[in-house]
Every structure is written in C-alpha cells, then in structure tokens.
C-alpha cells in the first residue's frame, strides 16, 4: 500500500499538462569516444517530460550510444569516454556527486533482446525494489509486483504462474516482463533500445500500445529502426546520422515536412 502511494505521489509531483512540456533530460554538446573512434560528435537534445522521444537513423549512427549515455551505461565499457553536459531535472548526471546506481534506478532501461533473469517471474520483478528497499514486507512487495505487471500489461497472462521461470515466457511476454521489471523501481525515465526488434508483429503491437499507456506516467526515450513505429508511438523524433543529430522536432513535422535533405532521404527510404 505504501509503495503504491509512493508511485502515486511521484506522479502527482510532476507538472500536469502545463503550457510548454517541461524538459526532463537535456544534452548539450555530448561527444562519445570508443578508444580513438568518435561515435558521437556533439549532440544537443532535450527530452521532454512525459513524452515519447524516438531516436531514428541508420545503423551505426550513434543513437544507441546516445541512449546509453542517458543512464551512464557507457561507464561499463572500459574504452568509452563521454564529454559534454547531460542533465536530469537540471542536475548534471556525470557530476562526481551523482551516484550512478541511483541514477540508473531513476532512469531505467529496456534492452533490444529480452533479458529476464533466470529466476521466477516474481523474482524478476521484485529484484529491483528489493535491492533499493522500496517495499517493506512481503505484502507490499506482492503489491509492487502486481502493479508493475499490470502496468506492463502482463498481469492477466502470468498471475497464476508467478513462481515459474521468466525465461519460459514467449519473446513478447519476456519483453513486457523486462518492462515490468524496469517499472517496478519507479523510474522517472525509461530508455528503450529497439525493444521490438526481436518480436513478431503482434507482440510489437502489444508493446507499442503499452508504450502509449506508459507515457502518462513516465518519460520515454526509444531507439527504433522501424519508422512506422517511431511515427506511431512518439511525440518527438530525433534523426541521427553518422554520429550527428541532424534534426529534431515534433514527430508529425519530421515525417511530413523534414527540413534536412538527409532526413527526407532516410524517411522516404532512399537509404538507411
């Protein structure tokens, strides 16, 4: 019960509707190097609160790299070096005073390939709340798990087999389990790295609906190769090309009236 009110309280604390959508995360001049190779050449991008921002672009353009900067997953790669400013609610996330573990709890991530832990469905979802101490006692944990699975649209399918291994689910269910796992720690931002690329069309449609629902409570950044998907689920779209961000704007505008020639070429399928 307490955990539920926590989730509720956080949702209430955010600006509702307002005039201009608030900026949740901000990137200014972000450069990433893998050894001597430069993967990102100075990215400026605002991620707006409770909107879906899609990052599109051809393979190797740096969109996943950028995504991984937003929760400092690049820290785990020895040869990666990040320059520039990146903020969450106005606070520099690469600042010394920032605890990277806490940051990743606030900025959750869903990966390209569903990667549930080889544990039960219940343990998959409860792991995050457990290590962050978000639920006191078993009843509360049960509630967090149920709520997270409900939000991920998986509850009805798995409520009778919570003790079965998460790896026994189908691909689409596994990905929704991973989303439930990310939601369970009450993040503010959810990063999704091509979450549907390993799924069939029906499972994809499921996830897309889910993303649309999650937008009410979470800020979402999604990397996708599928332009229809970007058009369907996002409010803002950023086009990346060769380590640069070519163009960013409202999704509708990017897809109907792109300013840059390269963007136009990519979305009309001339390359990519």
């Amino acid at each position: 019960m307490v955990a539920q009110t926590q989730i509720q309280a956080r949702a209430d604390a955010r600006p509702q509707g307002g005039v201009a959508p608030a900026v949740k995360m901000e990137a200014r001049g972000v450069k990433v190097f893998y050894g001597a190779k430069q993967a990102l050449k100075g990215i400026d991008l605002d991620v707006r609160d409770r909107q879906v921002t899609a990052l599109i672009g051809p393979s190797g353009c740096g969109k996943s790299t950028f995504l991984r900067c937003l929760n400092r997953m690049n820290d785990t790669i020895d040869i990666a070096r990040v320059e520039g400013l990146m903020t969450l609610d106005g606070q520099d996330i690469y600042d010394r005073s920032i605890d990277v573990v806490q940051l990743r709890a606030r900025v959750g991530m869903v990966f390209q390939k569903p990667n549930p832990f080889p544990k039960s469905i219940y343990d998959n979802v409860s792991y995050g709340p457990k290590i962050h101490g978000l639920a006191a006692g078993k009843d509360e944990m049960d509630e967090v798990v149920e709520k997270s699975l409900q939000r991920a649209g998986l509850w009805n399918e798995v409520k009778d087999r919570l003790r079965e291994p998460g790896t026994g689910l189908s691909g689409g269910q596994q990905q929704r389990l991973c989303i439930a796992r990310a939601i369970a720690v009450s993040p503010e931002v959810i990063l999704m790295d091509e979450p549907c690329s390993a799924l069939d069309p029906i499972a994809t449609a499921h996830i897309e609906e889910l993303i649309d629902e999650l937008r009410a409570n979470y800020t979402i950044v999604i990397v996708t190769h599928n332009m229809q998907q970007a058009a369907r689920v996002s409010q803002r779209t950023a086009f990346f090309h060769l380590g640069e961000m070519v163009e960013v704007g409202d999704t509708e505008e990017i897809f109907t009236n792109p300013h840059d020639e390269r963007t136009q070429g990519y979305i009309t399928g001339r390359y990519g």
Binding site: N71, M73, T76, V101, Q102, L103, R104, A105, R106, G108, M109, V110, F111, K113, N115, P116, F117, P118, Y127, G128, I131, H132, C178, R181, A182, A184, V185
Partner: peptide, 19 residues
C-alpha cells in the same frame, strides 16, 4: 545481457556479481 539487465535497474557492480 544478464549484467546489463541488473545494471539497468540500478544494481551496483557488487550486487550484479553476487546476485
């Protein structure tokens, strides 16, 4: 992918290893 999954929900490196 298991390491990334755990890191992605805010497990420390030690927690990733031991859990």
């Amino acid at each position: 992918s298991i390491r990334e999954a755990a890191l992605g929900i805010g497990a420390s490196r030690l927690q990733v290893v031991t859990h």
